[in-house]
Write a protein that binds this DNA or RNA. Structure first.
Length: 433
DNA sequence: TCTGGGGTCCTAGGACCC
DNA sequence: TCTGGGGTCCTAGGACCC
């Protein structure tokens, strides 16, 4: 078998998804906004060419977007998840060993022969079958495959695919040289300036840097990255395959409020909604929690930033939404003073254990009221998420978002596209004349 | 006025034990 | 005068990824 890793990474995934059911967006600048229509999280190639940066707050971009004909969309995760699943299914027909790394990206085993041709055929099948352009690369290590993917996306002549070992050695050196150190997988915004200050400005120089000095000054992770740049695979996928049903060690539900919340009722209501979303995910992966956390925070962009919260242990390990919601509400009530302009709150479930293997001494079994939680699950499974719940979590407003409770702190999503692959009433309509 | 969400691992430091 | 050493567990904070 050929050694190495194949990386398939969709191009501007969220923006590409928006185009699938709105072909009028083809060739035009498109940006997708984060929850609450807060900031830019995805940009089409045309939007990047206009100089729009990732993470720019939407309110600062709005005027510029109007002037340059940029289309903005609220993020439509239901649509993206559905198209992601389709994309993954197509890839499974081409290569074995798929490990999903994120919603738009996965690693696969290399083909037995003729890798360049296979990669290009797979790319074309995804484009035809799903409508999303994908860049497919192959290299001796995951880090090099990522680096090659970055190059291929910026090089139209590559045609969306590249195989490291097939490239001219001179070209490989140039690719390394043209990759700033901060664009290497595993080098973040903290480490990049420190490396640059040492003269390690690009991937070629980092590859040739002193291994032990890097280990000592930056830790084991960056030392591994250096090895990978040299062609020695040693980076594991941290949390890899989370998308394919692995059990998480921690479940976090956190949202900015649409408007600041200053009273305890608002905080408790939001905590209740998050607690129940977290409980759904906990139950879906068959875990129980032994430690529940909750916190609220003010806006980090306003003076006087503060975070308040804490932890509580349930009497017994639990996956009961009403128990979790009660604990979360109590934590916030105990730690968060009223009158503060809280901008966000979160519920965290951790110290998880398997539901199947959890046993205690006879006579000390947890007192779980499974009837209620199961009934809520069943209703939501049949009628859609958050149709039933404890406290505020079952109250729906007039909006169409799952989490829309009609409360003032709900998310803003003013530019949402249709969920054309998962809702009958939002299915795409094709007209012919 | 308005700035995302959800994960993982590593490391350092303190408490505690023998 | 001389004032141990090493292991484990836990937590908080930092860094990274998409």
């Amino acid at each position: 078998m050929t050694a190495g890793f194949v990386l398939a990474d969709a191009d501007s995934f969220y923006a590409s998804c928006e185009r699938v059911f709105d072909p009028g967006l083809a060739g035009r600048p498109v940006v997708v906004l984060s929850n609450n229509d807060g900031c830019v999280v995805a940009r089409s190639r045309e939007a990047k060419n206009l100089g729009i940066q990732e993470g720019v707050p939407w309110f600062k971009l709005r005027e510029f977007a109007r002037m340059h004909g940029v289309t903005a969309r609220s993020s439509n995760y239901e649509l993206y998840a559905s198209l992601s699943a389709r994309m993954m299914r197509v890839m499974d027909q081409w290569l074995p060993g798929r490990v999903a790394y994120s919603i738009d990206e996965c690693f696969l085993d290399p083909p037995a022969r003729d890798p360049d041709r296979t990669l290009r055929l797979m790319r074309r099948a995804i484009l035809r079958g799903v409508g999303v352009p994908v860049t497919v690369t192959m290299a001796p290590t995951r880090t090099l495959a990522k680096l090659l993917s970055r190059w291929a996306k910026r090089t139209p002549d590559a045609g969306g695919a590249a195989v490291w070992d097939d490239l001219d050695p001179m070209l490989r050196e140039r690719i390394l040289q043209d990759t700033p150190v901060g664009d290497i997988w595993g080098v973040g915004r903290r480490t990049a300036p420190r490396l640059t200050a040492m003269g390690l400005t690009d991937a070629m120089r980092l590859r040739d840097a002193d291994q032990t000095a890097i280990r000592r000054r930056f830790g084991v992770n960056l030392a591994r990255t250096v090895l990978e740049l040299n062609g020695t695979p040693c980076v594991d996928l941290a949390g890899g395959d989370a998308v394919d049903g692995r059990r998480e060690h921690m479940i976090v539900c956190s949202r900015m409020f649409g408007q600041p919340v200053t009273d305890l009722d608002g905080l408790r209501a939001a905590a209740g909604v998050h607690a129940q979303k977290a409980a759904v995910r906990l139950r879906r992966q068959g875990s129980l929690t032994r430690l529940v956390g909750a916190w609220a925070a003010t806006s980090p962009y306003a003076p006087g930033y503060r975070v308040a919260g804490g932890w509580m242990r349930p009497e017994d390990p639990t996956d009961d939404p009403s128990v979790i919601a009660r604990l979360a509400a109590r934590i916030l009530a105990d730690h968060c003073p009223t009158g503060v302009r809280w901008a966000r709150c979160a519920v965290i479930l951790t110290d998880l254990t398997d539901r199947d293997t959890y046993r205690t001494l006879p006579g000390l079994e947890p007192r779980l009221d499974e009837g209620l939680a199961d009934a809520i699950d069943a209703i939501n499974c049949r009628y859609g998420s958050m149709h039933a719940g404890v406290g505020y979590a079952g109250i729906r407003g007039r909006g169409r978002e799952d989490a829309d409770t009609g409360a003032s702190w709900r998310m803003r999503r003013g530019m949402l596209s249709r969920r054309a692959t998962t809702r009958w009433d939002e299915i795409a309509v094709v007209k012919s004349t």
